[in-house]
Write a protein that binds this DNA or RNA. Structure first.
Length: 470
DNA sequence: CATGATCCTG
DNA sequence: CAGGATCATG
């Protein structure tokens, strides 16, 4: 990757600022404090991802298998286990069933911070889909979600629909034998069931229609109760198809960031232990076929709908905290990854301008931190009286390494490659020499160092191509 | 004009 | 870390 550092040559104005801050730096030791660890504050985690992770973990617990799977191993493609559905459906068959299908947690589990990156629109959209699922997996006898839950408007819509339909048949069901006169118990039974059936069919119809609208907004707009937001969604779908979106609107708030067509594989790898129906796993690589598959699934039998929807949502969130974690580990190998490298090592991300630049930005931030540390420790060494760069070294015990390690590998659950230590040492010495030779008086003195360091990138191990594990 | 690097800021 | 600004490059 040939980097052009000629930028720096022309950055005189900015370099002047640099000079100023360097002057300050010299005076006040270190003007810039270390970054707070971003991991602690960074929590744009997707609700769905968290949810799915929880689901998988629940499942593991359920099976009594003590298989430890590091968080980083959790693919965003995790497909939830159908048994989850079974369980929730089963439980809801009880007379006082609780609505705790896996999805029903979404709205409450979500922490406000995690939701922040999502547009309200997306939250609404997701809530709607979740609501559909909830509706599908909740038997008519099941209680409605408890009060006081955060419910998006659309979710409420569906709930109202459910409520409504229940209002229609429940009275019949509970009407005592004597209340309405002399129906034979058989006739009455028959009437009740019939009414219930009709109500449920209506509900099903509504849900189905709604579902189709959500997944296929291009179709003729049916004037149901979904109006207001539908237009936005249509625009959104179009944007996604083109892979085009206005920068201001991007960020990880986009959903439907699916697998690359070229990459193809869904990387359910070891995660597939939480196997979903094969038909779902096989689902298409193109949006259209995916949608078609869902329709098929939906029409085939409603039991699969929740899984289908969950599958959709599972690959709906763009870059996740796990991707960030992975990127940081990759930094141990490559400080200047180009977009091709990024694409090959994030196969579970559908790249578009925003995703790409976000990733690039990440690495840019990583570098910034890295170089700041280097400069800081180099200056410290000079203050400490070190005279020869040879006396500087970077080992796993070094303070410098510890600083870097906590930044890129907070959990320390990753074996940092020795090569990184070498590169760090070279960088440190490079800074040391430059500073001790007063080269930092040159506004673009770092340019030379960058040029050296960018050549020290090594290949990222193949394992990083997988979404599972590290 | 789009992309990408760096710097600065919050 | 994300945003915004600035500059370079193709």
């Amino acid at each position: 990757m040939n980097l052009s550092f000629s930028n720096h040559d022309m950055h005189t104005s900015r370099e002047l600022h640099l000079e100023e801050s360097q002057a300050e730096l010299r005076q006040s030791g270190l003007q810039r404090s270390l970054y707070d660890d971003p991991l602690t504050s960074y929590c744009s985690g997707s609700v769905i991802s968290q949810l799915l992770r929880k689901t998988v973990q629940d499942k593991k617990a359920e099976k009594g298998r003590a298989v430890y799977l590091p968080a980083t191993a959790m693919s965003s493609y995790t497909v939830t286990d159908p048994s989850q559905e079974d369980r929730s459906s089963r439980s809801s068959k009880g007379s006082v069933a609780e609505p705790s299908s896996p999805m029903s947690h979404a709205s409450t589990v979500a922490n406000p911070e995690a939701d922040r990156p999502l547009t309200e629109h997306h939250q609404a959209k997701r809530a709607r889909v979740e609501s559909i699922i909830r509706g599908m997996s909740t038997s008519p006898n099941a209680g409605l979600p408890g009060e006081g839950q955060r419910i998006d408007t659309d979710a409420r819509d569906v709930r109202e629909m459910v409520k409504e339909s229940r209002r229609k048949w429940r009275p019949l069901q509970h009407r005592g034998p004597g209340s309405s006169g002399g129906w034979s118990s058989k006739d009455e039974e028959c009437q009740k069931l019939k009414a219930q059936l009709q109500a449920m069919q209506r509900l099903l119809g509504d849900l189905q229609q709604r579902f189709l609208q959500v997944c296929q907004p291009h179709e003729s707009e049916s004037e149901s109760e979904v109006e207001d937001r539908e237009e936005e969604e249509e625009e959104e779908e179009e944007e996604e198809e083109e892979g085009m979106m206005d920068p201001p609107e991007c960020g990880n708030s986009r959903r439907n960031e699916g697998p690359k067509e070229s990459g193809g594989e869904l990387h359910i790898g070891s995660d597939s232990q939480c196997e979903a129906g094969p038909d779902i796993i096989k689902m298409g690589k193109r949006e259209t076929t995916e949608v078609d598959s869902i329709h098929l699934t939906f029409n085939k039998g409603d039991r699969n709908l929740p899984e289908a929807l969950k599958y959709e949502l599972s690959k709906a969130e763009g870059l996740t905290p796990n991707h960030l974690k992975k990127a940081k580990l990759m930094f141990f190998y490559t400080r200047y990854p180009n977009s091709n490298i990024l694409k090959t090592f994030f196969p579970d991300i559908k790249f578009n301008r925003c995703i790409t630049s976000q990733l690039i930005k990440w690495f840019s931030n990583f570098r910034e931190f890295y170089y700041i540390q280097m400069e800081k420790f180099a200056r410290q060494a000079i203050v400490d009286g070190v005279t020869n760069a040879k006396d500087l070294s970077v080992t796993r015990d070094s303070e410098l390494f510890r600083a870097l390690n906590t930044h890129y590998n907070k959990a320390s659950d990753f074996q940092v490659p020795g090569r990184f230590l070498e590169v760090a040492e070279i960088t440190l010495r490079e800074f040391f020499n430059a500073i001790s030779q007063a080269k930092d008086s040159d506004p673009s003195w770092k340019k030379a160092i960058y040029k050296v360091i960018c050549k020290l990138d090594s290949d990222v191990p193949e394992e990083f191509k997988s979404t599972v594990c590290l």
